[in-house]
Structures are given as structure tokens and as C-alpha cells.
Nucleic acid binder design. Sequence first.
DNA 1: GTCCCCGTCCCAGTATCCGGAACATTGATT
DNA 2: AATCAATGTTCCGGATACTGGGACGGGGAC
Lengths: 258, 258
Amino acid sequence: MDTDRDETEVDADAVGVSTTRKTFALLEALKAEEGVTIADLTERTDLPKSTVYRHLQTLTDLGYVIERDGNYYVGFRFVELGEQARSRNVGYTAAKRAVFELGQETDERAVFIVEEDNEAVYVHRYGSLSNTMLGQRRPLHSMASGKLILAEWDDEAVREYIDEVGLERITSNTITDSDALFSELESIRERGYAVNNQEHMDGLRGVAVPVYTPDDEFLGSLAVFGPTSRFTDEYVHDDLPTRLRDKAGEIRVTLAYG
Amino acid sequence: MDTDRDETEVDADAVGVSTTRKTFALLEALKAEEGVTIADLTERTDLPKSTVYRHLQTLTDLGYVIERDGNYYVGFRFVELGEQARSRNVGYTAAKRAVFELGQETDERAVFIVEEDNEAVYVHRYGSLSNTMLGQRRPLHSMASGKLILAEWDDEAVREYIDEVGLERITSNTITDSDALFSELESIRERGYAVNNQEHMDGLRGVAVPVYTPDDEFLGSLAVFGPTSRFTDEYVHDDLPTRLRDKAGEIRVTLAYG
DNA sequence: GTCCCCGTCCCAGTATCCGGAACATTGATT
DNA sequence: AATCAATGTTCCGGATACTGGGACGGGGAC
């Protein structure tokens, strides 16, 4: 019926408040490009001009959107909301430090990743200049951290995940077969760490370990990744897992004794 | 008429879409405390239970709010929106590195601060364990960075600011007299840096310098702060300003030549 | 000077948001 | 074990206020 031409579109037959959906469709459209004009947004969202105008007026009035000579931008108020999410759990804060230290000690890119809505979300990051990537979302099955998270779930939950999300192919190495995934998860559970062998991006390997609270609650995944040239089998399977496990242990200790 | 008992309340006679206002009132209430229940939110926002329910349903469906056994949380999707704001300008990204280096070299807390909606917003931060504070907002007149930003404006703009926002007293040292503020701004313009002498918090001093793009566009403020014991007059007026200016210059160079 | 595009504003119509109230469910208390 | 209180979920009539077409005005391009 609808050709669903655009992700930022609002589907009519959905639960709840459709006005709010329009608002967030606009915010997503704003996020996609910097400095967007009202005309741009009407086209991008397929909402009538006057509706876009009225919504933007509300958002700028609330201070969530910034208008500067005709162009609209996502405002800094969202940073505060985002930080609330990132510090929601004390463990997340402890993980921030661990990511930093890990990055410094190994001189590799390090991340702390958490699952939300069946996706892997980057919560903390060390390495490279900017921290684009923070808050970004990836499919779980295509990364070390994601597979590690799946390995924490029971088989039924994983099966549901596969049903809902599927196992999209991203590189030639991505695991797209559910049997292969299940046996991979089993071996992750045995080893206690997960490895990503160019399953998300060619030339990129990674290692991930789980982080637990003192009460053995699963918090998220601590991971390190880098180019295949440097990430040899030995580095990936012998050196990094113990280093990562140590750091994950430190988080646990921090949480237990401050 | 209304006793405006709560900040998260929605005032009726406002421009735009009132439904959206309700949504953000709920989000602000969610931000204030972790793990809030529907009953909590109805009380906090003075919205009827069914309205809260419907709105939360929409927000969780969109993935912006997370529900875990009856408690609602701000979701990680806001991190992505926030990062968009923080990387909106290439200069902001360059400033991130500068803040980090500055913090390491001086071994003090360092921040990069930008103005939005007549407030100072923390965009980047180095020091202390967590980065609570990111995205937080402070009155401009009570901090080194804020005064520095005001010093970039012309007198008329500053006067408008005083009219709209006022000069709230925060500590006994806060500048609350507009004449005093204007002469302070003048001396900031002459010196090229601003000093905060316990004007926002007792025992805390700070120094701020402006950051400009290669086209001399004002970007924001680079600042360092710490306890009065260590932040002596000499440190604050001789040592730090030059170091800060150097770093601000580096940002400029980075922007010019990559 | 003309044209075109974009932002702003207005207004009638009705979609849909609202909120009271009833029902379901949980869990605490006696 | 039974009662009760409190909270979450659902429903529905009613009117609020959201919608979107269209008109107006301004500004830039050619």
C-alpha cells in the first residue's frame, strides 16, 4: 500500500500517539544531515510544510532543536538525555574507565557495548579522534560483542532473536546460518570470550569478553578490535582474552569495593 | 493561576504542539530519576495515568524509552542524537582532542564549553571518573567560560541577556551587578582570557580562553578549573592563559590544515 | 524588474488525543 | 487463605487541538 520509501516516515496504523511519532521522525531527519531547512524536512518526512513548521516551532521553543539563520540542528539538550542513559547503571560508568585504560595499555581501539532492543549499542569508546560511533547500533550476530551477548541468552531467546531480526549478511564472513550461530555461541560459552573474524567489516578482527556485576548480573561487553595485520591468531586468542578478562574483573571489583 | 509546582509541567498557553510538550515533559521526568514507574510519572507530571501510559507506549515502541519489569528508563537512542549535536561542527571534534591533551598536560580538569539558548553547555570534558556534567547547562555570568562568551557579544546583546536571564547570585563572589559585569567583560576583551574566582562554587577557580576557526568565527571556550589551593594568582594569570591560548591555536591550525 | 521558492500565518474540519472510569493483576498484610 | 490497596491496562465518548491546504509576503536569483 505504502511504498515505504523513507525510514523517517510515520506509519499510520501504529499504537499510541501519532503526533509524537511525527516529532521523532523529524528529529531523525534532523540527525541525518546537519543544518536542514524546513523545505528539506517537508520533503524528507513527507509531512506538509505547515506541520513541519509547527513541530519545529515547538521543538525550538522547548530548546531541543536549534535554529540558526533558517537551518535547524539537533540541540545539546539531547546530550544530557544521552548521558543519563550512559550513566544509568553504575557499572556503565566503571566500564568507561576500563575502556580508557584498556585502550591505553593495548594501544588498540576499545569499546564497551550493551544490548538494547535486540541491537548492539556502543556506550563507551577509546581510540581514533572523534567519538562518532557512540550510540550507534549494530546487529548482534556480526560482531564479537554481539555474539557474546547472544551467548548470555538461552537458546529460546536466541531463536526468537533470529526470528525477529534475522541473520543479515554483512561481509562474506558473517554468520548467516542459525546452526552455525548456535555452535559458535556454544564455543563462546566454553572459552569465555568471543572473536569477530571480519564478520562485520573486511580486514577487521575483534575480541570481546563479558562484564559481570558482583552479583553475577551481566552488564555488557568489553571489546578490542583492529586490523587483521596486527590481530593475529596468537594475539586474538592468547594475549587479548586474558587482558580483557582482567579488565572486566577490575570493573567487578570496583563495583564491589568502590 | 497555576502554581507552577513542578518544572516538568506543561503550560497550556504555549505555541505549537502541546502533545509534543507532554512527551518531553515525560522525558525530563524520566531523566530526573532512574527507573521510574508509571505511577511515579503520573504524579510527577500531573498528567492522567492513561495519558502517561499511552505516551510511554509510543516512546518505547519507537525505542527511545526502555521498559524493564515495570520501570522506565531513558534509552540509548538519545546518545546518538546527542553525539550528532556534539559533532555538528568539525571544530567541536577538534576541541575534544584539545580538551584531552590539555587535561593530561596540566593534570587539571579541562572542558570545552559552548553557548546555546543563553546558557553555557559542557560539550567535552576531561578529568574525574565519570562524565556526568556533559550536556549540563549553567548560567553564563557565573563562570570563566560563560563570561568569555559574553565578552564575544556586543553590549546590546549582553544587555538583552541580562534582561532575559538576569544575574542570579550563586556564590558570594558571583557578579550580580550589570555595571560590574560590563567592566569585567571589557577587561576580558583586553586580556584575551577570563577568570572565574569562586563565582560559581566556593573554592573553585578557573581560566577560559576563546577558540576561533580559521575564518575567525567564534566556536566556544576552552577552560581549566580546580581548587583555589592550587589555582594561585600566578598559576591562573601567568601560566594557564598561555597554555590555553596555545591549545586554542592548535585547534585553529587543525581546522585549517587538517 | 520578474519570477520562483521558501517561510509564516490562518482557518475550517475532523482526526485523534485526552482523561475518567472500569477491569485486571500483582503483592502486601492480617 | 482471603482481603485490600495500589498499579498497570483497556475502553470509549467528547471536545480539544492537530492537521494541511492555501494564501500572503519577503528575499534571492537570473
